[in-house]
Simulated assay, not measured.
Amino acid sequence: MSGVDKPTDPAALRAEIATTRAELGHTIEALAAKTDVKARAQDAAGQVTGAAREKLGAVRNQAADLTGAVADKASSAAATVRHAVRDADLPAMVRRPVPLAALVLGTVAVGLAIYLLRRRRS
């Protein structure tokens, strides 16, 4: 401020002083914020955390999409294999492995029962 534009009216002087005080207050607040290392670090950490959460959400969505696509392809491949096995000229036990597995499991269970009974008697 130069000497030429100084107001001479007391009300104008008070208004200019109030404006200068307000500007000075804003400047001091800005300087204090810059020197508050803890607050700046917390602010930066909050920004990084927010960015990481956004990235995590995007990755989760992408993984969910890929999982759905893989599941669709797997079920399609399984259906193709089922049709190929059903249409192939194979024995019934091979075409339907569930009865074969049940037969094997039953045989193992009977064998285990006999083993345990003999062990208990001796």
Rank of each mutant, 00 (worst) to 15 (best):
S2V: 01
G3R: 10
V4N: 09
D5E: 15
D5W: 01
D5C: 03
D5R: 07
K6M: 11
P10R: 06
A11F: 01
A12E: 08
L13D: 02
L13T: 03
R14P: 03
R14H: 12
R14K: 15
A15F: 10
E16S: 02
E16C: 02
I17W: 12
I17N: 13
A18T: 13
T19Y: 04
T20I: 11
A22L: 12
E23F: 06
E23K: 06
E23R: 06
E23T: 09
G25D: 15
H26K: 10
I28T: 03
E29Y: 04
A30T: 09
A30W: 04
A30I: 04
A33Q: 13
K34S: 07
K34G: 04
K34L: 13
D36W: 00
V37L: 04
V37S: 03
K38G: 07
A39R: 10
R40K: 05
A41M: 13
Q42M: 07
D43Q: 08
A44K: 05
A45N: 06
Q47I: 02
T49D: 09
A52H: 05
A52W: 04
A52Q: 12
A52F: 04
R53D: 15
R53K: 14
E54D: 09
E54G: 14
K55E: 13
L56K: 08
G57T: 04
A58T: 03
R60D: 13
N61V: 05
Q62L: 08
A64F: 09
A64I: 06
L66D: 10
T67G: 09
T67E: 14
G68L: 10
V70M: 15
D72C: 01
K73G: 03
K73H: 11
A74Y: 11
S75C: 02
S76H: 13
A77F: 12
T80R: 15
T80H: 11
V81K: 08
V81G: 01
V81W: 05
R82W: 01
R82P: 01
R82A: 09
H83A: 14
A84D: 07
A88L: 04
D89C: 00
D89W: 01
A92S: 10
A92F: 08
V94S: 03
V94I: 09
R95Q: 12
V98D: 15
V98E: 15
P99C: 03
L100H: 02
A102Y: 05
L103V: 05
V104T: 12
L105G: 10
G106P: 00
G106S: 11
T107M: 11
V108R: 07
V108L: 09
V110L: 13
V110F: 08
G111C: 08
L112R: 04
A113P: 02
A113G: 07
I114S: 11
